[in-house]
Every structure is written in structure tokens, then in C-alpha cells.
Design a protein around this nucleic acid. Structure first.
Length: 254
DNA sequence: TTGAACGTCCGA
DNA sequence: TCGGACGTTCAA
């Protein structure tokens, strides 16, 4: 039995296909996938509505055994079954939303406990430049950190932050693939955004070879539809883009 | 230089 | 509104 799950399109057409030109490796080393005990078919056959949030928080004994061998120290979160194989990743987004609603993911204001990467992060004002969340899940958190971009969270200053709140700031803009330089109005030229590398499509390692983008790669110049970064799918700039830039400038000038 | 892929235009 | 085509940018 193989623990490696092939990240493919909904019909998994590439079980026997793989691009010889397009690198199959994730964009970042941190994206290397950890082994997990579940297969793609497991998640494909598991409706979202059946996903019990409490089960996510407190895996069943069988899940714990599968994810945490007895001889290993419970150093970090058990490897929660990798639901990234879901074509849409809605399991994770749904679960995260449920957690938010249940209060298991709480938005907590900064209390100056430190941990920030720099003095500017200690600053906080009415613009909400420094709000962050912390999970109330005890010693470990059952989600892969890669979940958070799906659920609207973004990494900033070594912490995951809620995009709805810090999306007003630089973190959100950078998370969308914009470089600080391109935001500063310096070059002013068209800049290509980069894949986030953490969303479900980005984590796919193979092209489906069946979508229009794959079929028309030579002429279409497009990445496989199932590998298209969720961030890049969003409209460049998006709603409130200018406001976010101006707010970031205010924050960064404090 | 080449290939991958984002941004944009335009037709259906 | 969506998808295809192409120009362009970027990295190897």
C-alpha cells in the first residue's frame, strides 16, 4: 500500500501521466508532503457534511494511531489526513470555517507578549495593523498550516493571521503575490504575481493533461486548471486594493 | 536562450 | 461571463 497520494485532477487522469517539462516539485521545500494514512479515494468518497469538526480536533484513536506511532514522541500535531487531495479543498475550508464559528479558532488581539519579528510588529493601532489569531487547541493543532490560506488566513511575521483583518495590511498584499517593490509604485510596470505555493492547486504536483490548459499548453501558455493558484485566480488588486495599500503605508510608517 | 506561466485582450 | 490566444515576464 502506498502512502503517497497522487495529486491529480478530479478524475485523476494522470495516474499514468506526468509532465516531463513542468517540474512536479512544490515551489518551496516546506511544501514537501508528509506521508499520511489515507488515500485519495477516501476523501473523494467522504462528503463534506460528514466531516465532524470535533473529529478534526480530537482524532479518533484509530486516527491517532495511524498518525502517531507509539514509539514516537508527540512532538507536534498528528498528521491529520491529508485532505488536500480533495479537488476543491473544501473539506479544509469548511472545517476551518466551522472551527471559527465554534470559537475553536479565536481572533485574539495582540497583548504585547512579544514573539513578533520586529519592533514594528509591536505597534498596533485602530487600523488593525497588528491583529492576529491563535488557535485554542492545546498542544497541537490538527490542520496542516497550508490550510489557512484556504480559510482566509495568511502567514505574516511567522504567525498565521486572519486575512480579513490583516488583509488590510502588507501581509495580505504580499500574500497575493505582490512584492513590496511593486506596491511602492516604484517600477510601475506590469509584474507577474507568483503562486502562493500553499493552496490546494499549488500543492498539486501533476498536470491533469486533460483540461484545456494542458491540452493547449503550447498556445495557451496556461498552467493546468487544477494547478492554478487560488490567489492568482483572484482579480489582481481585488476589492479594496488601493485602500489596503494606503493602509499598509500608514501602518508601515508608524 | 528556452520553457513555464501570468496578464490581458477579445470573441463566443 | 467564460475561455482561448497571445504578449510578456520570469527563472533556469
Amino acid at each position: 500500500m502506498s502512502t503517497a497520494v497522487d495529486i491529480a485532477g478530479p478524475s485523476s487522469p494522470d495516474q499514468a501521466h506526468s509532465s516531463t517539462k513542468i517540474p512536479n516539485e512544490p515551489l518551496r521545500p516546506s511544501l514537501k508532503r508528509s506521508s499520511h494514512p489515507y488515500s485519495l479515494s477516501h476523501y473523494m468518497s467522504t462528503p463534506s457534511s460528514a466531516m465532524d469538526v470535533t473529529g478534526l480536533i480530537q482524532p479518533s484513536p484509530a486516527q491517532q494511531r495511524a498518525a502517531q506511532p507509539a514509539h514516537t514522541k508527540p512532538r507536534r500535531a498528528p498528521s491529520w489526513p491529508d485532505m488536500w487531495e480533495s479537488p476543491s479543498g473544501l473539506h479544509l475550508a469548511h472545517a476551518a470555517e466551522l472551527l471559527m464559528r465554534a470559537g475553536l479558532l479565536a481572533l485574539t488581539p495582540r497583548d504585547g507578549e512579544g514573539g513578533g519579528s520586529g519592533p514594528e510588529e509591536e505597534e498596533e493601532d485602530s487600523l488593525g495593523c497588528g491583529t492576529e489569531f491563535q488557535p485554542f487547541l492545546g498542544a497541537w493543532f490538527p490542520f496542516s498550516p497550508a490550510l489557512f490560506p484556504l480559510a482566509g488566513f495568511q502567514m505574516g511575521g511567522g504567525r498565521w493571521r486572519n486575512a480579513a483583518m490583516v488583509g488590510e495590511g502588507m501581509e495580505g498584499l504580499v500574500a497575493e503575490g505582490y512584492s513590496p517593490g511593486s506596491l511602492g509604485g516604484g517600477s510601475g510596470g506590469r509584474r507577474k504575481r507568483k503562486r502562493c505555493g500553499e493552496c490546494v492547486p499549488c500543492r498539486r504536483q501533476r498536470n491533469c493533461e486533460q483540461c484545456s490548459s494542458c491540452r493547449n499548453r503550447k498556445r495557451g501558455h496556461q498552467i493546468c486548471k487544477y494547478r492554478k493558484c487560488e490567489e492568482l485566480k483572484r482579480k489582481p488588486g481585488g476589492p479594496g486594493f488601493e485602500t489596503r495599500i494606503s493602509r499598509w503605508r500608514i501602518c508601515s510608517s508608524v
